[in-house]
Amino acid sequence: DRYEFNINGVHFTIDDAEEELIKLIEELLKRGARAEEIEEVIRRWER
Rank of each mutant, 00 (worst) to 15 (best):
D1C: 15
D1S: 14
R2A: 08
R2V: 11
R2G: 09
Y3V: 02
Y3M: 02
Y3K: 02
E4H: 04
E4Q: 03
E4T: 03
E4D: 08
F5L: 07
F5T: 03
F5Q: 01
N6E: 15
N6R: 02
N6I: 15
N6T: 15
I7K: 01
I7H: 06
N8E: 14
N8I: 01
V10A: 05
V10M: 09
V10G: 01
H11A: 08
H11G: 06
H11I: 15
H11P: 05
F12D: 00
T13P: 02
T13A: 14
I14M: 04
I14K: 01
D15R: 02
D15W: 13
D15I: 15
D15Q: 06
D16Q: 11
D16M: 09
A17H: 04
A17N: 05
E18K: 10
E20I: 05
E20M: 08
L21Y: 02
I22P: 00
I22H: 02
I22R: 04
K23F: 13
L24M: 14
I25A: 00
I25R: 00
I25M: 03
E27N: 10
L28T: 06
L29D: 03
L29K: 03
L29F: 06
K30C: 06
K30M: 11
K30I: 11
R31I: 12
R31N: 13
R31M: 13
R31V: 12
G32F: 06
G32R: 05
G32E: 11
A35S: 08
A35P: 11
E36G: 08
E36F: 08
E36H: 09
E36N: 08
E36A: 12
E36T: 09
E37W: 05
E37N: 05
E37Y: 07
E37T: 08
I38G: 00
I38P: 00
I38W: 02
I38Y: 05
I38Q: 00
E39R: 09
E40A: 09
E40V: 08
E40T: 08
E40S: 11
V41N: 05
V41M: 08
R43A: 14
R43G: 08
R43K: 12
R44L: 13
R44G: 15
R44K: 13
R44T: 09
R44Q: 12
W45K: 06
W45S: 08
W45Y: 13
E46C: 04
R47N: 12
R47C: 08
R47W: 05
R47M: 11
R47F: 09
